[in-house]
């Protein structure tokens, strides 16, 4: 599992419809909805790259890139 600085969140705000599924199920409360109701990464340092948000995003709007994982490949 990567942590903090090794993780990048790629969010496509055009695709996000703001359903809040990712925010609710994030085990580390890394995500929130911004003022426009779109997903926003507010505590990246807490992200453990579990990818539950990516897996459950109905809009395919979040991608979690874990650099550690890539280096290990």
């Amino acid at each position: 599992m990567g942590k903090g600085k090794s993780v990048t969140h790629v969010v496509d705000k055009e695709w996000c419809k703001g359903c809040g599924i990712c925010v609710h199920f994030c085990p580390k409360k890394v995500l929130e909805l911004d003022r426009k109701g779109k997903v926003d990464t507010v505590r990246l340092e807490d992200c453990i790259a579990c990818k539950l948000c990516e897996l459950r995003c109905p809009d395919l709007a979040i991608q979690i890139i874990n650099k550690q994982e890539r280096e290990n490949d």
């Binding site: 996000c16 897996l55 459950r56 395919l60």
Partner: peptide, 17 residues
């Protein structure tokens, strides 16, 4: 994209899986 499904529709998750 964005696709035509409503916000929170589960179908997009099936697509992802």
């Amino acid at each position: 994209f964005p696709h035509m499904w409503c916000p929170g529709c589960g179908h997009g998750i099936v697509l992802g899986s």
